[in-house]
Amino acid sequence: MRNPIATLRNRWSDSDARADGGEPASTRSFFDRDSVRSAPFWLPPFLLVGLFVYGAVVWNFLLSLTDFTGIGEPDYTDLDVENYFVAFADPVDGLLSTVGLGGEVQGGSPAWSELTVEPVWNSLGNTIALMVGFAAICLALGLVLAILVDRGIRFENTFRTIYLLPMSLSFVVTAKFWLYMYNPNTGLINIALGAVGIGPVQIVQNPDLKLGAVAFALIWQFSGYAMIVYLAALRGIPSSHFEAARVDGASTIKMYWRVIIPQLRTATVSALVVITVFALKAFDFLFSMYGGYQPGPSADILATRMVREAYANQNWAYGSTIAVILFVMALFIVAPYIYSQYRRGEL
């Protein structure tokens, strides 16, 4: 019978054994395994990530089952899913309002609060609208820019550097710039609108425009990223594909549509994953733009709602609940991506 440890052992320890002068396989210890010998390298970072990332995620889930409101220690003996019922209270009206069909949503009244607590439908709807709108336009703009930059232009580096520049800025800084751009009296946008006889328009505090204004600023910041990803992918397509299409007599637009764009699937997926996750994180931007935890109902996303419930309203357990919802959303986006990477052997 083969020794199970011996079957686990890999070529590294085998060659070491030869160097050592032919130590018999059966006496080699646990410490000779490569997973163990390389442990000093991967284990400390893994423990840090395990504790602070995955440990915290699990702990957060436990907290979401408590009634913790910041007083004393969380009571881990009395766990229930009440907070999730509150978060998704009144599902029919909630879902209707999420897709913009109105509907008065009834809040729940959990044991830990004397007040009615709002469900998450409103911020969930805003999160999805922001994610979809922002990601779609970001990718489209990035693709167009990448195709233009890829046309063998002069000063390519300069253009690329300028397009990617906003991404090096903090959300907080971007929010300050756009707060200024959107200002009704002195903002560039309203000055431009005034020049053609419109305005001044209140943008940042206008419930109808808020979310669009946020998305627009985020597009300004991240479309350069989409461009860089697409540009790298375009450069990876063999030039024979471009030439073959040209010989066939396809027009430039047709060539891109039929031949080139279908080959950008991988780039699209990875840019999409990163950009959508950026949208989930837009908290910093909203906090800076609205100077605090209150962006108002029409721009409230799950990311702001979570922090507000926990850190402003002291509804810690409810904040954790919303955090779990955010985590699950991120998981739904990322897990298929990582799995597909694994299947293609790129992990």
Partner: peptide, 12 residues
């Protein structure tokens, strides 16, 4: 771990 939103760990 790259993609986990910070919110998911803030309270802990």
């Amino acid at each position: 771990g790259i993609f986990i939103p910070y919110q998911a760990v803030l309270v802990p």
